[in-house]
Write a protein that binds this DNA or RNA. Structure first.
Lengths: 126, 126
DNA sequence: CTCAGACTTAAACCAAGGTTCAGGTCAAGC
DNA sequence: GCTTGACCTGAACCTTGGTTTAAGTCTGAG
């Protein structure tokens, strides 16, 4: 199994190398180092980067993604079971955001027709 | 009609004075200056601050609020007509965000059951 | 007139999620 | 062995929506 340099991982994942280094600084990725201090990745890391990007896509902050990644067996790719459990979490997170937005929409509709904009009375400005 | 100092406007609106200055720097508010260079506001400004906060509440970025405020007659409070038109805009903006989130939810549901997470194929990571 | 408290400014700092840069090192092809 | 491109680090910079701080000025009550 050939290892990937950071440039190769960047190209194959579409994620800039600067971003991969950023993720590593923040504990979302880990890498083996060569004797010359350069990063080397197993191909499985590609899946882990995919997991991070997919999670970001649905609006999960990096810190939270990092917490979930702590449950990954060291150096292993995300397993189907791992993905299934994470997907359940992320799904609930999206649903909550949709619900919050819809509640806000209702408040706004009521206030839009009232138009008072009075501090201390209007739900939109208080 | 008595004028308000920035501290009074801050207290009556619940918006910190530092934030009011910040809004002014970014063109969302204007003030008269005393001979000693202190800010003075007409009471009508309270309504304008309310408009800004209400707009922020529904997720409109300050830059966009500022653009809309350009249509206000100089120094005047937001009229009911002004609010009605702005409210229509903001309502559409919320609806779009809800719709975008729901589309994302659908993509996610499909991908969550697939779980491939493959770059270039999966809609969640590509 | 004096003095406390409110006001002024510019500049630095915060969160998140990065990008860019300078200066230096590594790896690989010839 | 040399050269070139890829890589390394830390630091600075970016956006948005502010807050905090320092140093100095104004206003109004007594």
């Amino acid at each position: 199994m050939p290892e990937l340099t950071i440039g190769e991982l960047a190209e194959r994942s579409g994620v800039p190398a600067s971003t991969l280094r950023y993720y590593e600084r923040h504990g979302l990725l880990h890498s083996r180092r060569t004797t010359g201090n350069q990063r080397r990745y197993a191909e499985a890391m590609l899946r882990q980067v995919a997991f991070i990007r997919a999670s970001q896509r649905v609006g999960i902050p990096l810190a939270e993604i990092g917490e979930v990644l702590e449950f990954l067996p060291d150096g292993g790719a995300p397993t189907p079971q791992f993905w299934a459990r994470a997907a359940q979490c992320w799904g609930r997170a999206i649903d909550e955001r949709i619900a919050a937005l819809q509640r806000r929409r209702e408040v706004f509709s009521a206030c839009a027709s009232c138009g008072c904009l009075t501090f201390g009375e209007c739900a939109l400005v208080a």
